[in-house]
């Protein structure tokens, strides 16, 4: 049985991904050119958004659910992080877990009514929530050490910055910190996809009637998926808050949620590699465009059209096309007889 487990292609793929992820997370700051300064800070944020992208990807790729409120949930996670930190001064790791729980609750509350109806109503409702959260965040602002529930300082008082976690003080260290957290969270997500919840989600995606007749409580399992992906997105919010110690409502506009959704579908919603590609597109591409002197708004045009193309033709996204390329190249690079898997 053990032997079997490691010979499964999905398990091997996950282990390879885990190893590559850890090497990148720990080794990237040594790389000349991208390992320091603005480039490293950009990559840090890209890695953080890969978590939010993974949330979108699991919902769409594994359950066929469309959630267009993910950046709003990042804001919720960030808000909860700052709020809890300023109230309690607990260690960042504890705050992060609490913020993830808060975000999970919000995600479930939003999805609860819509999930009973149809996929389209969830898309509509989450878009509405994205719009509502944008305005709420702009109105309430992010806590910065003030009094009251909203925690905003007023008058001449200086804003309090949340310090970075002890293990990630410098930019280098913080990148490694973020990298390890992202890899660990993605690994947990991958594991979840390979055990009972993942199996059940696959059955639900295949067909509602078939799943129910197997005894699956489809609403409960969809809610579980929303809770899990929202928690993961909440972690992204916490890391974002940790990076700068303070958050700006302008980063959490509703169109960012739509943009993230587009990048995930273009990157590939069926694998977590697609989520990483999505994160790079989402945050890295506008930065890249502006460094070469182009208007960052062109990203919307490119990714918007890319989304139309991804939906109508390339269902598996870039990650799917890479996997296909790999399947074709591998026999030529390492020719070997196919091993039969038996029990």
């Amino acid at each position: 049985m053990k032997q079997d487990f490691f010979s499964r292609t999905d398990v091997r793929g996950a282990l390879v991904g885990l190893a590559v992820g850890l090497v990148l997370a720990l080794g990237l700051p040594f790389l000349p050119g991208v390992g320091a300064g603005l480039a490293l800070r950009t990559l840090t944020v890209c890695a953080i958004y890969a978590l939010a992208a993974a949330g979108v990807g699991v919902l769409y790729g594994r359950l066929g659910l469309v959630s267009i409120m993910q950046i709003g949930l990042v804001a919720v996670g960030g808000w909860a992080t700052l709020r809890i930190y300023h109230a309690t001064h607990l260690p960042f790791e504890v705050v992060m877990v609490l913020a993830a729980l808060v975000t999970a609750v919000v995600g479930v509350l939003v999805g609860l009514p819509a999930l009973r109806l149809s996929g389209l109503s969830l898309a509509i409702v989450t878009l509405m929530v994205a719009g509502a959260l944008e305005v709420l965040v702009t109105y309430a602002g992010f806590p910065n050490g003030g009094n009251g529930f909203l925690g905003r300082v007023s008058g001449g008082t200086l804003a309090v910055i949340m310090p970075r976690p002890g293990l990630g003080q410098s930019d280098d260290e913080f990148f490694r910190y973020v990298g390890v957290v992202v890899v660990v969270v993605l690994a947990l997500l991958r594991w979840l996809l390979m055990v009972r919840p993942g199996r059940t989600w696959a059955a639900i995606r295949q067909g509602e009637a078939g799943a129910v007749s197997l005894g699956v409580n489809t609403v409960a399992h969809r809610l579980l998926a929303l809770a899990v992906t929202s928690a993961v997105t909440g972690v992204a919010g916490a890391l974002l808050a940790a990076g700068s110690g303070i958050l700006d409502p302008a980063s959490f506009k509703a169109q960012q949620s739509v943009l993230l959704f587009a990048t995930v579908l273009i990157g590939g919603a069926f694998s977590l590699l697609g989520a990483v590609i999505g994160g790079l597109f989402f945050y890295g591409m506008p930065q890249l465009l502006s460094t070469v002197g182009l208007d960052g708004n062109l990203v919307f045009v490119v990714l918007g059209l890319g989304l139309v193309q991804a939906v109508t033709t390339a269902q598996a996204g870039i990650a799917g096309q890479l996997a296909e390329l790999w399947r074709r190249l591998r026999p030529r690079l390492w020719p070997r007889p196919r091993r039969e898997v038996t029990v």
Binding site: V66, I68, L120, A123, Q255, V258, L259, F261, A262, L265, N297, L298, V299, F300, V301, V302, L303, G304, L305, G306, L307, V308, Q309, A310, V311, T312
Partner: peptide, 14 residues
Amino acid sequence: AIATLGLALALLGV
């Protein structure tokens, strides 16, 4: 419906 989200994004970008 999702495809039209792409159109919305592209138009917003323009």
